[in-house]
């Protein structure tokens, strides 16, 4: 990893549309992801209310054999906070991209770092949420709700993790040799991915957390 290549190859190659290959590919990828998350969300909604045993997302449950009572498990205040953090990370991300386009080395680093940090904070919230659910007696093996909830939000979290790694890589390159306006496309790709992960969360927050 000694030599980090500069923006290479594409400037002098003919393209039919004048658009960058990678940008077309990432939009196709995002389109494909719509079906991926669509299937996960469908499964969650189909299985909603079909769990044989609790805990349940929106109502309390008493185990008939032990008499133990479990409260409604979703923590709206905490998730609202993490939703807010993720929304703000999208703002930081557009600002990072705008800074790179302007050639502003200082603010590109600041906003990239802020985005990565906000992403990491969101993941922290999710780790907290998952562990507290496990303590309250909900694992992916407990019931249908557990399986579909953990896998849907877990896959979203995995996407956020990949995005944070991507952001850190860009930040690393920025420190190593500086991101120039010619590199804006690289940041743009990351930004498109990042915003998409954000809009998926917008859907999840409403469909899974708020609608009862």
């Amino acid at each position: 990893m000694t030599a980090i290549p500069h923006e290479h190859g594409h400037a002098h190659h003919y393209t039919t549309t004048g658009l960058d290959h990678r940008k077309i590919a990432i939009w196709a990828f995002i389109g494909s992801e719509c079906l991926f998350f669509g299937s996960l969300i469908s499964t969650y909604l189909i299985y909603k209310g079909r769990s044989v045993v609790g805990p349940f997302p929106h109502e309390a449950w008493t185990n008939p054999s032990t008499g133990q009572t479990f409260p409604a498990i979703l923590d709206i205040p905490v998730t609202s906070a993490s939703t807010f953090v993720l929304l703000m990370s999208s703002l930081f991300m557009v600002l990072a991209h705008a800074s790179v386009v302007r050639g502003d080395r200082k603010y590109s680093k600041i906003w990239l770092a802020a985005t990565a940090l906000a992403g990491a904070t969101f993941l922290g919230f999710q780790a907290f949420e998952f562990t507290s659910f496990v303590h309250e007696g909900l694992t992916p093996r407990t019931n249908l709700f557990g399986s579909s909830f953990f896998i849907l939000t877990g896959f979203h979290g995995a996407h956020v993790t990949a995005g944070v790694i991507w952001l850190i890589t860009l930040l690393f390159i920025d420190f190593r040799r500086g991101l120039r306006p010619a590199d804006a496309i690289n940041v743009d790709l990351c930004a498109l991915y990042w915003h998409f992960v954000d809009v998926v969360w917008i859907a999840i927050f409403t469909l899974i957390y708020l609608i009862q």
Partner: peptide
């Protein structure tokens, strides 16, 4: 889902857990 059911014991296809 099937992989997780088989390897990690989730319930996506477990009929006794209410799966469809």
């Amino acid at each position: 889902f099937l992989m997780l059911d088989r390897f990690f014991g989730t319930n996506f296809y477990t009929i006794t857990a209410g799966a469809d």
